[in-house]
C-alpha cells in the first residue's frame, strides 16, 4: 500500500479529532451557567475563595491558555468529575463499555449478514416479487424510529406473549447455579434489544448491497464471464458478489455513528446498563462533564473506524489512490 496515502489519512483523522475537540470545548463553554458557579455551589463564597478556585482550575487565564489546559488534561486521561456519580468520568464510562459492545456487536453482525443476503437476493431477482417484498421491508424498517420499534416489541413479546424479559441485563435478585445459567439469562435479556437495533440497520445494508450489486452486474467483466459460458450462479458467486461487497466496508464504518444513536434509544427503552443509557441519564441530570466525556469517546471511535475503513478499502480495492 502507498505510504503517502496512509500518512495523508492519519493526518486527516488527526485534524478531524482536533476539530472535534474544539467543537466540544466551545459547546461546553456556552453551556448555561458559569463553570465557576457549578464548582463553588455556594453564592456566599468569599472573594478570596473565588479567586483561589479560579486559579486552581485555570479560569483566570485567557481562553487559549484554558484550551491548552483542557488538552493537557485530556492527554493525561483526565475527563473531569461526574456531577451525578461523584467519580472520575473515565471510570464511570469504563464500567459501561462492555454491555454496549456486546449489544452493538451482536446487532451489527446480524444486520450485516441478513442485510447482505437480502440485498443479494433482491438484486439477483430484480423486479420479481421477492425483490419488491424485500425492498418494501427495507424501506419500512428504515423509516421507523428505533425507539418506537423497541416499545412495540416490549408490548408484544414481553407484555402480551411474556416470552422475553422487559428490562435490564440480568434478572434482578436472581442467583445462578452455574456460569452457564448466568449467560443464558443475559442472552434472554439480549434478544429484544439486539432484534430492535439490527432490524433498523438491516434495511440500509440491504439497500446498499442491492444497489452495489446491480451496478456491478452491468459492468463489462460480468458480460465477459457470461460469454465464457459460466453459469449465472457461478458468475454471481465468484465475480459479482465479492466486488459488490466492497462498498459495505465503508458503509459499516460510516454507520457506526448511527449505531451509537440507536444504542441510546434501545438502551433507554430496555434499561440496558451501557453507554447509551448512561448518556440518557447524564442528559436528564445535566451532568455536563459526563456528557462531554461520552461525546468525545464516541466521536473518536467513529473517526477511528472511518480511518480503518479507508485503509482497508484501499487495500481491498487497489484502484483507489489517495
Amino acid at each position: 500500500m502507498n505510504r503517502n496515502y496512509l500518512l495523508k489519512k492519519i493526518f486527516q483523522s488527526l485534524i478531524t479529532i482536533f476539530l472535534v475537540l474544539i467543537i466540544n470545548y466551545i459547546l461546553f463553554r456556552v453551556m448555561p451557567g458559569d463553570p465557576l458557579q457549578m464548582l463553588m455551589r455556594n453564592p456566599k463564597a468569599s472573594g478570596e475563595a473565588v479567586a483561589r478556585t479560579k486559579a486552581l482550575f485555570g479560569l483566570d487565564r485567557p481562553w487559549y491558555a484554558q484550551f491548552f489546559l483542557y488538552l493537557r488534561q485530556l492527554l493525561h486521561g483526565d475527563l473531569g468529575l461526574s456531577f451525578l456519580h461523584k467519580k472520575p468520568v473515565l471510570e464511570v464510562i469504563a464500567s459501561r463499555i462492555l454491555p454496549t459492545l456486546l449489544l452493538a456487536g451482536c446487532a451489527e453482525v446480524i444486520a450485516i449478514l441478513v442485510g447482505t443476503v437480502i440485498g443479494i437476493v433482491s438484486a439477483w431477482k430484480r423486479g420479481k416479487k421477492i425483490d419488491v417484498i424485500s425492498l418494501s421491508f427495507a424501506l419500512v424498517t428504515y423509516s421507523m424510529p428505533t425507539f418506537w420499534l423497541g416499545i412495540v416489541f416490549v408490548a408484544f413479546f414481553s407484555v402480551f406473549l411474556r416470552i422475553f424479559p422487559t428490562t435490564g441485563m440480568v434478572t434482578p435478585g436472581a442467583t445462578f447455579i452455574s456460569e452457564f445459567a448466568h449467560m443464558v439469562d443475559i442472552g434472554r435479556h439480549l434478544v429484544l434489544p439486539t432484534l430492535t437495533l439490527s432490524l433498523v440497520m438491516i434495511g440500509e445494508y440491504a439497500l446498499i448491497m442491492r444497489n452495489s450489486l446491480i451496478d456491478i452486474l452491468t459492468e463489462d467483466f460480468i458480460t465477459t464471464a457470461r460469454a465464457k459460458g459460466f453459469t449465472e450462479q457461478y458468475v454471481l458467486r465468484r465475480h459479482a458478489v465479492p466486488n459488490a461487497l466492497l462498498p459495505m466496508v465503508t458503509i459499516v464504518a460510516i454507520n457506526l455513528g448511527l449505531v451509537i444513536g440507536g444504542t441510546i434509544q434501545v438502551e433507554t427503552i430496555f434499561s440496558w446498563p451501557g453507554l447509551g443509557r448512561l448518556m440518557y441519564e447524564a442528559l436528564m441530570n445535566r451532568d455536563y462533564p459526563l456528557l462531554q466525556g461520552i461525546f468525545l469517546l464516541v466521536s473518536i471511535s467513529v473517526i477511528g473506524a472511518n480511518f480503518l475503513a479507508d485503509i482497508l478499502y484501499s487495500y481491498l480495492d487497489p484502484r483507489v489512490k489517495g
Partner: peptide, 13 residues
Amino acid sequence: VFLVLPWLPLMLI
C-alpha cells in the same frame, strides 16, 4: 467533521 460526528449525541447535546 459534521458528516462523521455521531448524529444523535450531537443533537442531544
